[in-house]
Design a protein around this nucleic acid. Sequence first.
DNA 1: CTGAAAGCGCTTACAG
DNA 2: CTGAAAGCGCTTACAG
Lengths: 327, 327
Amino acid sequence: MMSVTIKDVAKNANVSIATVSRVLAGKKEAYSLATEKRVHKAIQELGYKKNKAAVELVTMKSNVIAILVSTPKTNFAMKIIESIQKNAYKKDLSVIILFVGDNDEETQIKALNTVIERPVKGILLISVELCGDAINLLKNSGISNVFVSTAMSKESKFVSSDDFKIGYEATKFLIHKGHKKIGLSSLEVDKFIGQQRVAGYLSALKDHHIPQNDDWIFDGDYSYESGVASMQYYASQTDITAVIGASDLAAIGIINTAQKLDINVPDQLAVISIDGTYLVDIVSPRITSVTQSFYNMGETALKMLFSKGNESSHIYTSFQIDERESS
Amino acid sequence: MMSVTIKDVAKNANVSIATVSRVLAGKKEAYSLATEKRVHKAIQELGYKKNKAAVELVTMKSNVIAILVSTPKTNFAMKIIESIQKNAYKKDLSVIILFVGDNDEETQIKALNTVIERPVKGILLISVELCGDAINLLKNSGISNVFVSTAMSKESKFVSSDDFKIGYEATKFLIHKGHKKIGLSSLEVDKFIGQQRVAGYLSALKDHHIPQNDDWIFDGDYSYESGVASMQYYASQTDITAVIGASDLAAIGIINTAQKLDINVPDQLAVISIDGTYLVDIVSPRITSVTQSFYNMGETALKMLFSKGNESSHIYTSFQIDERESS
DNA sequence: CTGAAAGCGCTTACAG
DNA sequence: CTGAAAGCGCTTACAG
């Protein structure tokens, strides 16, 4: 199928292609009303669509932004994507989405190459920690980029919650409820976010003069299964009375396993989750959560992508604690 | 930042740009090993990346496929997208994702225009019913397309579950459990999928000589809230003993509301959901479901997109009933 | 095995 | 207000 080009429109409207291009671009001063009408009529008649590839080639830029997102173990990434998508749409930006493995250098490099091969306007990376070579590739590309939800290194732009503060506030909340033996479950303790939350957790304990216990911190991957495993462990090896689930799904795993073990939530075990997606409201008991503002996160990331200046600006989006039935 | 082009590589490797192009394309017969090595070395040194926009312009095709997906009310679309994404990745295809309103002609047209403006290889439409003008736009574009999860009209390619059969089998399952008063909740009764499921439901009742009752069918939109509303209605206006939730979320809404009303699931009310995503396993009671094969659906859709021939081929992916605790 | 050249569909100074 | 022309970075017959 031969598609209709700017030439066909020009011929039909009896003007030059330059004029058609100007009308298309809306350079008002550059053509008469009569011309404009003829061109629009021709476009209508022929069903003409601009060829973006040609435009991108000649202008060396595009209105495409790329999202790299790690294959979901949790469910919040979708919310961020939705937010980015909606806001991008308003600004006439197209969105390319690529899933990458979280610690998989090969897919990271491949995805980045795919993206860099076209003149994308910017790259958003949602909860992916980039491997060494991938970081260099991204830097050398010179393409504006923002890390979302996961803070990378100090030299990159990122928007996320303040995970230290999340760890601190979640812990403080449980302490104020009278708990002294508090678990911290299912986070990746050797990754940036995990470290921040652990640090915040420990800091809260310390500030309240509560002794810490390494056995209370359960390494995991934010998944439901990880929550299940942690609860089995906690029940058999510890005497905690409260636990912070590092994600909603992990918290649900904890609660379901507790119920199976005849441990009443919240009476025998208080649970608070981190994330606060719709899941916390549809399970029973409804889960008290540290609720992150994912929608705002996506919106902010998009703004940062186009903001001039500081290449290492960090923005923390707000979070709040929503008390429900599990604590 | 001036990026490096094929010219730079040619100069560095001391060959023509035609040769560089051939090496890049891997046309083995067309260059010597020595040349190949020099070119690859130059590419390495300069950090050259092909400009996709130029390639697309000259070849008039791309390896981009577009996904239009309706703004999620349910949670299964993500599974389909994940599947498409993974399989596309293997075939070196990039994926553009656009969210569109379900009955929103404006966003549908805008999204389609965005997509058609570049030489995309194909368009996948996940659970979106296209409005009239949008349908024409898609057809006239001449771009290969497949509807996923929602069957459109008979003239388009689609892959989905057989929703008549789903309605039939879900109903039969409950009948075999001894139920005669069976609700069908939260589906859009005036859309294609809803109609199919209703028809299957009625057919199963008829085949088993069970009288139908219009009051048992509750119009909705597959959402959690819709499930909640239906249960309030059923409890006050009907005496059903079993109900089919049109999505997992709807079923969860039904169950949570039943519990609030002191109606025991499954003893006083049996519940079966349609979808069978991970949600059915993390709530309590775990929900018996008609489990659709979303992963397979995405995979199949991608294959259909590139299959020659029949422009109106339909493929039904399989489903199964998984009995759990809610029935 | 290799290169010169045409051409893909646009945009944008430049000249009028 | 308008057009002729150069050029974006590639691919691919064509000719050798």
